[in-house]
Lab assay of single mutants.
Amino acid sequence: KMTIRVKGKELARRIAKEMKDRNLKVEIHEHGDEVILEIE
């Protein structure tokens, strides 16, 4: 399990899509400006 902190929703969406393309499970937690992606 891996956690990534990202500034900006646009970048977070791009990373999430990339991870889904690799068949990984992604959970997205938004905290205002910061987005936390949990990847399994």
Rank of each mutant, 00 (worst) to 15 (best):
V35S: 05
V26W: 01
K9S: 07
I36G: 00
G8H: 09
I4G: 03
V6T: 03
M2T: 14
L11V: 10
K17Q: 13
R13P: 03
K1D: 08
V6F: 04
G32N: 08
V26S: 00
E30L: 12
K9D: 07
A16S: 04
M2F: 07
R22K: 10
L11G: 04
R22E: 05
L37A: 01
R22C: 15
R13I: 13
N23D: 07
D21L: 06
K25F: 08
I28N: 01
I36D: 03
K20R: 15
A12W: 02
V35W: 15
V6H: 01
E40D: 10
L11Y: 03
E18V: 12
E38F: 13
D33N: 08
G32H: 03
L24A: 03
T3H: 11
R22N: 08
I39E: 01
R14M: 12
R14C: 15
M19F: 12
K25I: 11
R13H: 13
M2N: 10
E10L: 05
A12E: 03
K7E: 06
I4P: 04
E27P: 00
K25D: 06
V26R: 00
K20V: 10
G32I: 05
R13L: 14
D33Y: 06
N23E: 06
V6K: 00
M2C: 15
L24Q: 04
K1Q: 10
E30K: 06
A16I: 13
K20L: 13
M19V: 03
E18A: 13
M19D: 01
L37Y: 02
I28A: 05
K17L: 08
I15G: 01
M19L: 14
E18M: 10
K7Q: 10
V6R: 00
H31T: 11
H31Y: 14
M19G: 02
E27T: 15
K17M: 09
K9V: 12
E38K: 09
E27C: 14
E10K: 07
D21M: 04
H31N: 14
N23H: 10
G32A: 06
E40Y: 15
R22L: 11
R22G: 03
E10R: 08
E10T: 04
R22H: 09
K17D: 11
G8Y: 07
G8P: 08
H31P: 01
V35M: 11
H29F: 14
E27K: 13
H31E: 14
D21T: 07
E40L: 12
R5W: 04
H29Q: 08
N23Q: 07
L24H: 07
K17H: 07
G32D: 10
K20M: 14
I39N: 00
A16L: 09
E30F: 14
T3V: 15
K17N: 09
K1P: 09
R13Y: 09
R22Y: 04
R22W: 06
E40G: 12
G32E: 09
I4D: 05
N23G: 15
I39P: 00
R5S: 11
K7V: 11
E34L: 13
I15W: 00
E10M: 05
E30C: 15
T3M: 09
K17T: 08
K25Q: 08
H29V: 11
K20W: 08
H31K: 11
L37C: 03
K25W: 09
K25M: 09
R5E: 07
K20P: 01
K20T: 13
I39W: 07
V35K: 02
L11H: 08
D33E: 12
L11N: 08
K7N: 08
D33A: 06
R5Y: 06
K9T: 09
R13E: 15
H31Q: 12
G8R: 04
L37T: 00
E40S: 14
L24S: 02
G8V: 08
D33I: 06
D33G: 10
E30Q: 09
E27V: 15
K25P: 03
E40W: 15
E18P: 00
L37P: 00
I28K: 02
M2Q: 13
N23T: 02
I15D: 01
G32W: 05
E18S: 10
V26I: 06
I4H: 02
K17V: 07
H29D: 04
I4R: 01
E18H: 11
G8E: 11
A16R: 02
E27M: 13
I28M: 12
L37F: 06
E27R: 13
E38M: 13
E18D: 08
E40P: 05
R5H: 13
H29P: 01
I4S: 02
E18F: 08
I15T: 02
R13W: 05
I4N: 02
V6I: 11
N23V: 02
E18C: 15
L24P: 00
L11Q: 09
E30Y: 15
N23P: 00
I39S: 01
G8L: 11
K17R: 09
E40C: 14
A16C: 12
M19I: 07
K1A: 10
V26G: 01
E38Q: 10
E34C: 14
K20E: 12
M2V: 15
K7P: 04
D33F: 07
I28C: 15
E40I: 13
H31V: 14
K20H: 09
L37V: 07
L11T: 10
V35H: 05
A16Y: 05
K17I: 08
T3F: 10
L37R: 00
E27Q: 12
I36S: 03
H29G: 03
K20C: 15
A12N: 00
K20A: 12
V35P: 00
V26C: 03
E40A: 11
A12T: 00
M2W: 07
N23S: 07
A16N: 01
E34F: 15
E40V: 12
D21R: 09
K25R: 12
K9C: 15
